[in-house]
Amino acid sequence: MSLLEIRDLHASVNGNEILKGITLTVNAGEVHSLMGPNGSGKSTLAQVLARRETYEVTSGEVIFNGKDLLEMKPEEAASEGLFMAFQYPIEVPGISNPYFLRAALNAQRKYRGEDPLDAMEFLPLLKEKMKLLEMDERFQSRSVNEGFSGGEKKRNEIVQMAILEPKLAILDETDSGLDIDALKIVSRGVNAMRSADRAMILVTHYQRLLDYIVPDFVHVLAGGRIVKSGGPELAHELEREGYGWIEPALAGAR
C-alpha cells in the first residue's frame, strides 16, 4: 500500500478552482519534487494536504497511511505523521522554541497513546538537531522564529521536522530566500532525514535545490494539473528551458 494516494483532487478558494484534478502516488522512501511557475497550484496542493481550511476540496480523495486524509483536522493530520515546512513560518513572540516544540511533540505523542517527554529528555534531542542544522545555541532561548532572518526560519522548520520525525514531509519552497551556503546546510539536514519509511515532497520553483536533494521523481504543475512527470533530469530541462514550454502543453490539455 502506498503512503499517500491522491486521486483526481479538485480544490478551490473563494470559489476559484485552483487544483483541477491532481492524481499522485507517493510511496514510503521516495522523494518527489513538485515544480511549476508561480500560481500553478503547487503551494495550494501542499496546504490542502496539510488540511488548511481556507481551501475547499470540491472532489477527489486522498488516502494517507490507509486513512481518509480529507476527514482529518490539521492537528490530526500532523499527529498521523504529516509535516509541512512552511514557506512563511509564523513568529510567536514570548513562546520559546523548546517550549513550543515540546508542546507540539507531546500533543502528537498523546494522540498516538505515547507518554509525554519531559524537558530533561527533550532538550538533548533538540540540541542534537540544532547542531545538524548549524543553528547557534542562542536560538534555543529565543521565541519561536522571532527576529529570525528568512534563512534562519527555514532552518528552524527543518529542526522541527527532525524532532517530529514525520512519515511524510512536505517542504513548501524551503529553498526560497536562502543563499547558497544556507541552502547547502538545509539540504544536509533534509538528506539526513531520508529513510526507507519516510517520504518527502519538495515544492520548489527552482532546480537548484534539487542539485543538493536529488529527488526520485519530478512533477511539473501548471494550471492546477500535473502536466509532466519524470526523473531528476526533468528538473534540469526546466532550468535550461524555463517554464515557457508549458503554455502550449497546457493549451493541449485544455
Partner: peptide, 20 residues
C-alpha cells in the same frame, strides 16, 4: 494553522499566542 500543523489544537494555539 501553523500551530495545528504541528499537532496543537486551535484553543491551545490561541492561548499560547496570547500568553506569549
Amino acid at each position: 494553522f501553523y500551530f495545528r500543523q504541528r499537532g496543537l489544537p486551535a484553543e491551545e494555539a490561541v492561548a499560547m499566542i496570547i500568553n506569549g
